[in-house]
Amino acid sequence: MLQSLLIGDRLRLNALRDADIPLITAWYQDQNFLRNLDAIPVGLRSESSVREMIEGLMKRPTRDYGFAIRKKDTDELVGLTILDGILWNNGTCHVSIEIGEPSHRSRGYGREAMELVLDFAFQELNLHAVSLTVFSYNEPAIRLYEKLGFTKEGVRREYLHRDGKRHDLYLYGMLRREWEAR
């Protein structure tokens, strides 16, 4: 039987909507959320800058795919996942995931959403390799990526300076054959 594309047991991935922008803007006001996303200094985003970010992502459908992560039963927005920087000639891309509300974290949503987006990357887009980066202090994300089968491919030592300390940036990757073998 054909598996439903982008639909899991509890979640589904679909397009972002204008109505999502206020909630995403609220996530971008949370410094703990932001500190796991980017190496740049925490900068709170306005609603117009979030709208611009989302519109920019949706304007590059041959190089980037952005999805809303929603609960199947309520349609509630849980987070975002993005496949970006696709190099079609090499069959490679980068993946990122954001679970917005603290109450939605550590509930298995990240794992299910990553499984869905990786299925999409390897099965629908026919990509060969997916990579990601994660800061060394983001232990829950590291555990998730390793459970999913990502391999630690490298370290950018002392890449980030936060709160008076240096932190490494880990590089992880997964090949199509590794996804298929799990």
Rank of each mutant, 00 (worst) to 15 (best):
Gly100Arg: 07
Asp168Ile: 02
Arg105Tyr: 04
Leu160Met: 05
Lys72Met: 06
Glu178Met: 07
Tyr137Phe: 14
Arg182Met: 14
Ile54Gly: 03
Arg60Ser: 15
Trp27Gln: 04
Val134Gln: 05
Arg63Asn: 05
Arg70Tyr: 06
Tyr109Ala: 00
Lys152Ala: 08
Glu146Ser: 08
Arg157Gln: 09
Ala26Leu: 10
Ile86Glu: 10
Gly108Ser: 00
Gln29Asp: 06
Gly164Lys: 15
Glu139Asp: 13
Tyr170Phe: 15
Gln3Val: 06
His128Trp: 06
Lys72Trp: 05
Ser136Gln: 11
Arg60Val: 10
Val42Pro: 08
Ala15Phe: 07
Asn36Leu: 15
Leu83Val: 08
Arg162Ala: 08
Lys152Asp: 04
Glu146Tyr: 05
Asp30Glu: 10
Thr25Ile: 10
Ile54Lys: 04
Ile21Thr: 09
Asn32Leu: 11
Ala39Thr: 13
Leu2Tyr: 11
Gly154Leu: 08
Ser46Phe: 11
Leu11Met: 03
Met174Cys: 12
Arg166Gly: 11
Ile82His: 01
Arg70Ile: 00
Trp27Arg: 01
Met114Ser: 11
Leu169Lys: 13
Phe135Met: 13
Gln123Met: 09
Arg45Asp: 12
Ala121Thr: 03
Met114Pro: 05
Ile24Cys: 00
Glu112Pro: 05
Asp38Ala: 15
Thr151Gln: 15
Ala68Lys: 03
Arg60Lys: 15
Arg111Asp: 14
Arg162Met: 15
Leu23Trp: 02
Asn32Phe: 04
Thr74Ser: 14
Tyr65Met: 13
Arg107Thr: 03
Leu116Tyr: 02
Trp88Glu: 00
Glu158Thr: 06
Thr62Pro: 03
Arg105Gln: 11
Met1Phe: 10
Tyr109Ile: 05
Lys59Thr: 14
Leu171Ala: 07
His104Asp: 12
Leu57Asn: 14
Leu23Phe: 03
Asp168Asn: 15
Val95Phe: 06
Val50Phe: 11
Ile82Asn: 05
Gly79Glu: 01
Phe33Met: 07
Gly149Arg: 05
Pro22Thr: 04
Glu178Pro: 08
Ala121Arg: 02
